[in-house]
Design a protein around this nucleic acid. Structure first.
Lengths: 405, 405
DNA sequence: TCGCGATGTTCGGATTTCCGAACACCGGCG
DNA sequence: CGCCGGTGTTCGGAAATCCGAACATCGCGA
């Protein structure tokens, strides 16, 4: 059981080879996803049902090459370790792939023990359940947790970027608590209040002493206050953690925010994506909050119904975690039976509990949501939205017609 | 002169090949040590007469193999970057060498330009502190370096024009260090801070004595301060080097900047184009910075993957070198494997940032969710789930394949 | 043992989707 | 005024998706 519980994606079109690999890997306790085509491989790695620990990838596939798969994936994510296998190896290709970040390269036929040994060697180290989920259970959330842990071990300022209600202050606090400075003070300054003048900042820094100074909404600081921070960066005893909106670069372009301060901070940056982009986290968070709130009730509720969870997963959460909390509080106070129903969480919908959405319907509503999101993002610019969504302007127009947007 | 002053060890027993390589490398300014035997190679690298920046190593040698050389060296020291060349390549060998830490692997015969490019890419960073890094390898950067050298040999004020984060201060420093005045003081005044009043300038000039006075952001000076400089230009003992934004002519039009001061300076002008206009320099710089930063880590990274380099070349770099540095720092702190991937350098590509989920991705994950829901609903019965989802069993099967379920 | 229903898989063709090109149109902007 | 960039709309062909038909299996109960 070399690979107990590890998730391995196998991209291989040859039936014989595929079968024997799947068989052997499952014998080793691995959880194997076998696909036969390049596009499917990309899908299986990019949106996996559970995190991928390694990919075993044939190079010649009916609809593309393993190289293309790796390329495509690398553009958007840090791909899992790739072990390429091919019948017709070329040296240049091998060199190219390894230099591009592939983990290993073997030519068929190979001995199974050698294959297993090399695969075991490249397997992503088991992070598994050792680290409890804090921010969420999605790959994105796990990455954030990993970054928090990493930054806690280091020194240097940290910038936390993300929308409202995503718990940026909590992340800052966690970095402090996990760091060497945990016994020193943690001082928070909120630039959205008036307290964030240059003097107030200096006072905060003094209070922080050799602890952590957290500046919430650093983009709001005036020039003098920015100078205080910039001046302190080099020698000040405290550690600076700052938070800001997702799009701080805009303020830099306007000239209200100093580029050098931004880049000094951006070296250690955590980007917290909105809840809407990680529905599984919304469900997980709802569960966590429910349990916490339920413990404090005199009459305990049973839980969130499946339909409610589905609705939570698909909601847009413009207010992120804060909205989730508010809705859950409301739902738990108005819930009539043992279970929380979708209508309790989303009273504005008044949905009747009908049967399962058709696949086409699900696809359609997902498209609608995404299109609306994109249009909001671009301020209604259709061409720009089309580019974001990676479809032609024509196609987007057509879809908008069909969906009545 | 891609490799001016760099020390390259060439281990090659073939006289013809060896000769032509030595000739070509010396043409590029390299300092080549050519040995014909494995034992000599080990000695030449282990106890060099000057630090080795790279090793070009044949695999088949009369008294051993290149692999053995690398192996032997790795046991006792961190070997310099190895570029293996061989007439009889084997894939397994190439993979083994690259995984062991070799930098590159080429088969003979090869084109000389390709060889030089790949060698240049792996060269250890220039550590000579005497002459800090050059500006880059692009024709534009070379021209800048030439100008710096030329102005260092002359007298007279210099104006360095260019956007933020392009190292204008470093260029000024280099001019000073290369000039006759190198033993006199180099005084920098930053007009973006308050320190740049007329009095502060006079004080700076006094401190500079007969050295160099560097004024950063000369366009920001007020009228009195400009007068100080203009008055000093003729007879003052110090040499003036000024930097300003790319478009200083605008400020002149506004009347906030004196034309005569501008024209006095503009006679010796260096224009530093933004990094976006010379992608090769961005790649080169990234390599330099990576190596410098990597040296200070406890767990060394292998390098920037070729895909990451390609992404760096194509990025827009609005923050120029400063942004590059910040991104690289970030990437190196979050990198998960041995290599730095594009997504580590450009995290905004994978989340919120500027691009949200592609329409196809949104559709895909919606489908995945709905299919899983349906399958849960039917207890894994595929046909039944297909009926619920209103698609044919075949289609559902196909989708499950694609999504790796 | 056979029959039955479900699954895994392939194939060819009908249908839909997607895209680029093209054209008209509109509102700023110099 | 003309130019430019964006939008609304149509069209034809390329590419994908979807489906039914077909066939081999497989497990299970009669």
């Amino acid at each position: 059981m070399l690979m107990a519980g590890r998730h391995i994606v196998l991209i291989e079109d040859d039936a014989l080879m595929g079968n024997s690999l799947v068989q052997r890997l499952e014998l080793e306790g691995a959880d194997v996803t076998w696909v036969r085509q390049a596009v499917r491989g990309v899908a299986a790695v990019r949106t996996p049902r559970k995190p991928v620990d390694a990919v075993v990838c044939d190079i010649r596939l009916p609809d593309g090459t393993g190289e293309e798969i790796f390329d495509t994936l690398s553009r958007t994510i840090a791909p899992p370790p790739f072990l390429f296998i091919t019948g017709q190896g070329e040296i240049d290709q091998a060199v190219r792939l390894l230099r591009a970040g592939g983990a290993d390269y073997m030519t068929k036929p190979f001995e199974m023990p050698a294959f297993l040994a090399r695969l075991a060697q490249i397997l992503r180290p088991d992070e598994g359940e050792a680290l409890p989920a804090r921010t969420g259970i999605s790959p994105l959330a796990r990455q954030i947790d990993a970054q928090v842990a990493a930054f806690a071990r280091q020194e240097g300022p940290v910038l936390i970027r993300g929308g409202r209600g995503l718990g940026k202050a909590r992340l800052a606090r966690r970095i402090h608590d996990l760091s060497e400075r945990r016994s020193a003070p943690f001082v928070a300054v909120n630039a959205f209040r008036e307290e964030a003048s240059a003097e107030a900042l200096e006072a905060g820094a003094a209070r922080a002493s050799d602890g952590t100074l957290f500046v919430h909404g650093i983009g709001r600081l005036d020039a003098a206050a920015q100078d205080v921070l910039l001046g302190g960066l080099g020698q000040a005893p405290f550690r600076l953690i700052a938070s800001c909106e997702p799009r701080i670069d805009l303020q830099e372009q306007e000239g209200t925010f100093r580029g050098d301060l931004l880049y000094a901070l951006a070296a250690n940056e955590i980007v917290v994506p909105p809840l809407a982009e990680r529905g599984e986290d919304a469900v997980w968070l709802a569960g966590q909050m429910f349990n916490a709130l339920n413990a404090g009730r005199e009459t305990a509720l049973r839980g969130l119904s499946d339909l409610a969870l589905a609705a939570i997963r698909d909601h847009d959460w413009p207010g992120n975690g804060r909205e989730l909390r508010a809705r859950l509080l409301r739902a738990m106070s108005v819930a009539s039976g043992d279970w929380i129903h979708p209508a309790d969480v989303f009273p504005e919908l008044q949905t009747g509990g009908d049967s399962l959405e058709t696949l086409a319907e699900a696809r359609e509503s997902a498209e609608r949501r995404q299109i609306i999101r994109a249009l909001e993002h671009t301020g209604g610019q259709v061409s720009e939205a089309a580019r974001l969504l990676r479809v032609s302007r024509t196609t987007l127009w057509e879809k908008m017609q069909k969906l009545g947007l």
